[in-house]
Design a protein around this nucleic acid. Structure first.
Lengths: 110, 110
DNA sequence: GGTCTTTGCTACAATTAATGTAGCAGAACG
DNA sequence: CGTTCTGCTACATTAATTGTAGCAAAGACC
């Protein structure tokens, strides 16, 4: 049984300051989590399609991450496959500036 | 010797589409990375102070993450300790909305 | 009915990453 | 010289992730 996912109310590794940002940073810091949200940004994907989109990441960890994201209320499973919830879409909105930043970063001369 | 950090030019686990967002998501998806950027958001911290701020995370991994963040050009070591570079501060700007989202998330009734 | 195919999901051993504790060399201060 | 910091590393233990294989259930096809 996988360890329970962090939620806004109960931080896992974050300091127990009760600050939800800590729980969120902890959740998003798990491998593939950011990527999954990114891949689901505009289409629903079945578990297999998501796996393909995520460079054939192991189904074990994808399933674990999907459970965490569902527990957090960011992802749901519909007839079309996995997709972002309303809350998940709000979260993705904060990625928009991240994408713009990534473009700038790539031109930064590294 | 630690595996080399992802950069904007060379994705590691991301698909080789050349999209810098993949390299960035990969980098930020490493444990403690998001947290470190958060803790350095407004003050420079020595390695020990950063460790304290990060709930006594092991110095091994903090050092690894700091190296990655320095390679990426987000963090630098000054006389005052570790702090965000100009680029790192730009990256942190994208966190602002994330923090707002975290507050909303915590009230979402979980 | 039977048999493909695809779905979400799990088992399990192997590998890799992270933790926790200890400690190093170098610089600054007394 | 002896403290006390700094950044940083070694190393054994533990936890997370990977890769491969496969399950049961649901739908399509004949």
């Amino acid at each position: 049984m996988p360890k329970q996912a962090p939620t806004a109310k109960r931080s896992v590794r974050g300091s127990r300051t009760g600050r939800p940002i800590m729980a969120l940073l902890d959740l998003l810091g798990h491998r593939w989590t950011l990527r999954i949200i990114w891949e689901l940004r505009e289409v629903a994907l079945t578990s297999r399609a998501l796996r393909t989109a995520c460079d054939e990441a192991s189904p074990t960890i994808l399933q674990t991450r999907l459970t965490e994201l569902r527990d957090a209320g960011f992802v749901e499973l519909t007839a079309d496959g996995y997709c972002l919830t309303e809350l998940g879409r709000e979260l993705f909105e904060t990625f928009t500036s991240l994408n713009r930043f990534a473009e700038r970063w790539s031109k930064h001369g590294r």
